[in-house]
Lab assay of single mutants.
Amino acid sequence: MSIQHFRVALIPFFAAFCLPVFAHPETLVKVKDAEDQLGARVGYIELDLNSGKILESFRPEERFPMMSTFKVLLCGAVLSRVDAGQEQLGRRIHYSQNDLVEYSPVTEKHLTDGMTVRELCSAAITMSDNTAANLLLTTIGGPKELTAFLHNMGDHVTRLDRWEPELNEAIPNDERDTTMPAAMATTLRKLLTGELLTLASRQQLIDWMEADKVAGPLLRSALPAGWFIADKSGAGERGSRGIIAALGPDGKPSRIVVIYTTGSQATMDERNRQIAEIGASLIKHW
């Protein structure tokens, strides 16, 4: 067993022997301040990774656009098919120029040779490549099948209805392509620590998230040296922004954090800054 596999296998073990965790309302004060600064709703939840206990939450059962955070769930569904012998990570998928959609920095470079399922998941999570996500959605049967996968996990809230990039439209009061912070946090925890996926697939999923290259201005910008984070960000229309993450000190994750916002007129930089400040408060009061 590799060191990384050992780390993920012992996530519940280490967490069980940690000192009790206590909620700190100071972080919620910052979440509410972010709402004021952005002029928009902000949803927040913080779960203990081992027990699933909610440590703090704000608007945990209000719907927010998922945006690209759905790509972690998508690759979880792909990995479940791999575990069941219905898919192979090494299978190569070929596609054409007509398949390319807006923001496809990886797939646009491989029109000639195609990409493997493993490479597509890596591109979808680490670079948020939209064509990679659409190609992977095709392998599982489309958005409705991802929703069905989530329902089978016990998540009857999260739903995907459309493809990239239309799913980022974020129309107010439109339930399409949305989740709730509580539902997303619980589902992410199941994917990373539950028995739904094999140990190898859980490790692969967290490795992809740990290698995320496009979430630097968010929670990662607030992390002290030595902290662990595996995350996936999302951005959408109407001032929408979000991030889902597993993080913790001492090089291992111990909490799940989900943050979503929508309806702001603020710039992307300002949305990023507010999420980073929430992260800084979380870490300060850990």
Rank of each mutant, 00 (worst) to 15 (best):
K232G: 00
S80C: 10
R202P: 03
Q37E: 07
R118S: 11
R59T: 13
Y260M: 10
L100C: 14
E108W: 15
T139A: 11
V117D: 01
S68M: 00
M268F: 03
G90R: 10
G242T: 13
G85M: 07
S51F: 15
L282G: 08
A230G: 08
A280P: 06
G52T: 10
H151Q: 12
V258M: 02
A215N: 02
L205G: 01
P172R: 06
A182E: 05
F149V: 05
G76E: 01
W227C: 03
S240D: 08
D207Y: 08
E210T: 14
W286M: 10
L146G: 09
E119I: 01
L146W: 12
E175S: 11
T131A: 03
K109P: 06
L49C: 12
V257T: 13
A185I: 11
C121Q: 02
T69M: 14
S201C: 12
S128I: 00
I171G: 15
E270V: 02
R273V: 05
P105G: 08
F64I: 10
Q203A: 02
A123D: 07
L79D: 01
M127C: 07
S57A: 06
L55H: 11
P65R: 05
T186Y: 12
R81D: 05
L73V: 09
A230V: 08
K252W: 08
G43V: 01
K252N: 14
G39C: 04
D212Q: 12
A132I: 00
G141S: 15
A215D: 14
S128R: 00
R81I: 06
T27I: 08
E56C: 10
E46F: 12
R238W: 04
R59P: 00
M66H: 08
T158R: 00
H156Y: 14
G236C: 03
K232Q: 00
Y95T: 13
L196H: 13
G194K: 15
D212K: 08
D83I: 02
A133V: 05
V157L: 06
T126K: 06
W227M: 10
G242I: 01
V106D: 15
K284P: 07
L47M: 04
R271D: 15
L196P: 11
L74K: 01
S122A: 13
V29N: 11
M209D: 00
L219H: 06
V42D: 01
T198F: 04
L28S: 04
P253T: 11
L55T: 07
T193V: 04
L247D: 00
E210G: 14
T262G: 08
G142P: 05
Y44D: 00
T147P: 05
L136F: 01
P172A: 11
A182P: 06
P217C: 14
A200N: 14
V101G: 02
R92T: 12
I206G: 12
M184Q: 02
C121K: 00
A211K: 15
D113Y: 09
T193N: 12
Q97K: 14
E195M: 15
G242L: 00
I171A: 15
E164H: 00
G239C: 07
N98C: 09
E46G: 12
G263E: 09
F149R: 08
A230Y: 12
L167T: 10
G279P: 01
L219I: 05
V78Y: 08
M66I: 04
G263N: 10
G263Q: 10
V257R: 00
R220F: 15
Q274L: 11
W163M: 13
G279Y: 08
G251Y: 02
S122I: 13
E62F: 01
P60D: 08
A185W: 00
K32P: 03
A280I: 14
L282K: 13
G90C: 05
L49E: 04
D177P: 00
L282F: 10
V72T: 08
G194F: 09
D207C: 03
A124C: 12
Y260P: 00
D250P: 02
D113N: 04
E277R: 06
D36C: 05
Y103L: 03
I54K: 11
L167Y: 01
I140G: 07
K53R: 13
G142F: 14
I93M: 15
I125D: 01
Q203H: 02
A280E: 13
L282I: 02
L218T: 09
H151K: 04
R220A: 08
L150W: 05
V29W: 06
G114A: 07
D174Y: 08
M115C: 02
L205N: 01
N130G: 15
V31G: 05
F149K: 03
A235Y: 10
E62H: 02
V214S: 04
Q204E: 06
S281V: 05
D36N: 10
S254K: 02
A123F: 06
H156G: 11
Q265L: 09
G251L: 12
L47I: 07
G154I: 08
I140E: 07
L160P: 07
M115G: 04
P105M: 03
G263A: 08
A77C: 09
H110T: 14
E56P: 01
V117I: 12
M153R: 03
N152Y: 07
A276W: 06
E195D: 11
L223H: 09
N50W: 08
L49Q: 12
I171C: 15
S240V: 06
K213Q: 10
I229G: 10
L188T: 06
S221F: 02
D99K: 02
Q204M: 04
G226N: 10
H110A: 15
L150H: 08
V258T: 04
A280D: 15
M153A: 02
T147M: 05
A170Y: 02
A222Y: 02
I256W: 02
S240A: 12
A215K: 11
C75S: 05
S68G: 00
Y260T: 07
L196F: 10
G263L: 06
N98R: 10
P65A: 11
I256F: 03
T27L: 11
P217A: 13
R118W: 13
V258N: 03
S254W: 08
G142M: 15
A132R: 00
E166Q: 13
S254C: 10
W227H: 08
S51G: 03
A185R: 00
T131W: 03
Q37W: 07
A245E: 00
E237W: 13
S264L: 08
T262C: 09
A124H: 00
G248S: 08
A170C: 02
A40R: 08
S240P: 10
R255D: 01
M127K: 08
R91S: 09
T186Q: 15
I256L: 05
Q265F: 04
V117K: 03
G114K: 03
G52V: 11
S264T: 04
E175Q: 08
R159I: 14
V258C: 09
T147A: 05
V29M: 13
V257A: 14
I275T: 11
K284H: 08
S57F: 08
P65M: 11
P25F: 09
K213R: 04
H151M: 09
D36R: 07
L89Q: 10
T69W: 00
P105F: 05
D48T: 02
E169W: 10
R81F: 12
S122D: 12
E195H: 13
F64L: 06
V42G: 02
T126G: 05
A182Y: 04
T267C: 03
M66L: 09
L136N: 01
E145G: 13
E102T: 04
P172T: 10
M127I: 07
H24L: 08
I206P: 02
R81P: 01
P249M: 12
G226K: 05
T27Q: 11
G76S: 09
L47Y: 03
I206S: 07
S201Q: 15
G216N: 03
E46M: 15
H151C: 11
F70D: 01
T267A: 04
D36H: 03
N134V: 11
G234W: 00
A148D: 11
R162K: 12
E35V: 11
A215F: 15
H151N: 11
K232H: 00
G239P: 01
G279H: 04
G114D: 05
K53W: 08
M180N: 08
L167A: 09
T27M: 02
H110Y: 14
G141V: 07
P25H: 14
G39Q: 09
Q37L: 11
R255Y: 12
E164I: 00
T139Q: 09
